[in-house]
Design a protein around this nucleic acid. Structure first.
Lengths: 272, 272
DNA sequence: GTGTAAATAGAATGAATATTCCATTCGTGA
DNA sequence: TCACGAATGGAATATTCATTCTATTTACAC
């Protein structure tokens, strides 16, 4: 244990955390990482609660406190209890505070995106057709291989979806058209395409969907309306109305839907 | 003691306080008055501390708690502890419960992800440091070229960021390590790196940040806590606590923050 | 492999804390 | 002034919790 005096305020606490963060053994590192991200919980939790949340034994938390220079957990907790402000402002007030910093300022922008994200999620929850969702999952879970395509603004979604499926051991192939290759030969019977596209729709995405159709392979799509060319090409189409702010959309709703599909498919597959 | 059920949130607590405040005996009135004015202290104090602050005996505080309908002080305190900060819901076990209970239908999953997204966004709104955000935007806006890196789970964010910057005519270069090329030669004086990484941190991302440092180029990062290796390597670091649900995160907050950066930088550049 | 030190888990301990109980005080109506 | 019930203070108890200790495991150097 260092002879340095223990941090007596939250700021010093964080600084100290950075200091000691090198070469920490596994469990102590777990403590450090959890507490770094949840400093606000320290004031109102017991050792056992923090330990469980961090995934370690209570004794590990104690060792961590001592490593930080405190005599024990209680002393450390006292620091946070003293600096404990009144319960955090509600959501509306926080947004208001962010906006106050002036229209067009980064904080005000963030407030807008946060709000837009909220609305999009709300929208999603109420507009998704559970039946279509179920059927989509079923079809994807039975696929030999899941092909994924999404370009331009939908590319990020396609990437994350591919990543999530891979992580769940679902055979997935992302068509990203690097080098302008279309990998049409990779389509095999029993495969299913998951296509993501929003207006203005990428020709490449729509073409790929057509190819799958032509070969009697399934097509599921995530798109924005029944006017989408993907709508008619798909066995099942999930629509997401992302609320726009300026020229950009935060994709919160689309990503949530995509992730839902990935996890549901992954789970369904591992059960069979 | 009333048979009415005890208030389970702060709002009801206040309402109940008003209800019972008529014709209270002296000491209980003291309790009520003190606690009404210091509700925020309840979560982080002991009975003895509150009693002393209110100028009464601990037993008086106990009687007050029971008058409010709680079984004792601990139950009342729990209400205030829970209401502070993000709800201590453990999504990992919730996911497990969902699966076990057979309620793991895709729609139920979606509902969870929507809720997680909401929480993450609220979290972001309250935890973001407006000053750091401003400085980050300034530095990025002045960069000759913005380099972007984000791998694995952060790759989708990096992609979307690059897309958004491109769309706003900001010179941006995404390091995606395809073909295991690191494009180290592309770093030039006046460039700035925007690095995105979450635990477990990709070595490639951290290495790239080191290279920028070594060449006296700026580094901005979006990461999850001050324990991140990126934290110390960055001129400015923005932290985002995305709420996990099972092994996955919906990235709602991260994407919103990323997009804010992109739009703010794009705007700042076009103004000069 | 073998030996050594560090790290860890989990039970055991002791301190702090909530809670109850009872003797005493206070207020009120005869 | 007395009687009676409510209110109170403070000590006694039970419970929860922080903290320590020790056996075991893990990591590392030889």
């Amino acid at each position: 244990m260092s002879t340095k005096t223990a941090p007596q305020n939250v700021e010093n606490f964080q600084a100290r955390l950075v200091e000691i963060s090198d070469g920490l053994p596994k469990r102590l590192r777990q403590c450090a990482e959890y507490l770094a991200g949840h400093t606000d919980r320290i004031a109102v939790s017991t050792v056992a609660q923090l330990a469980e949340a961090a995934g370690v034994q209570p004794s590990a938390v104690m060792r961590f406190c001592q490593l930080m220079g405190y005599s024990g957990f209680s002393e450390m907790q006292q620091v946070f209890r003293d600096s404990y402000g009144q319960s955090p402002l509600d959501y509306r007030t926080r947004l208001g505070n962010l906006r106050k910093s002036g229209a067009g300022s980064p904080s005000a922008l963030l407030a807008e995106f946060v709000e837009v994200g909220h609305n999009s999620l709300e929208n999603l929850a109420s507009s998704v057709d559970a039946r279509v969702l179920d059927l989509s999952v079923k079809q994807l879970a039975e696929a030999q291989m899941v092909h994924i395509v999404g370009l331009r603004r939908a590319y990020a979604v396609a990437s994350y979806l591919t990543y999530a499926l891979e992580r769940m051991s679902v055979p997935a192939f992302q068509h990203d058209f690097t080098g302008c290759l279309d990998h049409a030969h990779a389509i095999r019977s029993g495969d299913v395409l998951l296509a993501i596209s929003f207006a203005p729709y990428s020709d490449e995405t729509v073409d790929l969907a057509r190819q799958f159709r032509a070969r009697d392979c399934g097509v599921i799509s995530i798109t924005d309306s029944i006017m989408s060319p993907l709508w008619q090409l798909s066995d099942h189409a999930l629509s997401v109305q992302e609320v726009d702010f300026g020229a950009f959309r935060a994709l919160s709703a689309t990503l949530s839907l995509a992730l839902t599909l990935a996890v549901a498919v992954g789970t369904a597959r591992s059960e069979t």
